[in-house]
């Protein structure tokens, strides 16, 4: 395998594996948030705000993988 194809493979694998964890995390986070909103609709505003903070932090992990993939393809 030459260096070019190894780079492309690594980029694909980093994006795929790197988005596994955040996907599971986002699913758990949103399902729990919806559950608690259904249980206590009167605090839905606060829960939604906290949910968005959590989404932002969790999603960043997948985006690091995206940036690494870009670096692998175009910079390295």
């Amino acid at each position: 395998m030459d260096a070019e194809s190894a780079k492309l493979l690594a980029a694909g694998i980093s994006m795929g594996v790197g988005s596994l964890g955040p996907a599971i995390g986002l699913g758990m986070l949103i399902s729990k948030a919806l559950e608690s909103i259904a249980r206590q609709p009167e605090v839905s505003g606060e829960i939604r705000t906290d949910m968005f903070i959590g989404i932002g932090v969790t999603e960043a992990v997948a985006l690091y993988a995206f940036v690494i993939a870009l670096i692998l393809i175009f910079v390295a």
Binding site: E59, A60, F66
Partner: peptide
């Protein structure tokens, strides 16, 4: 890093 890369990578993606 996370604050800047999150916004940048989201828009770029």
């Amino acid at each position: 890093v996370s604050l800047s890369v999150r916004l940048f990578a989201n828009m770029l993606a």
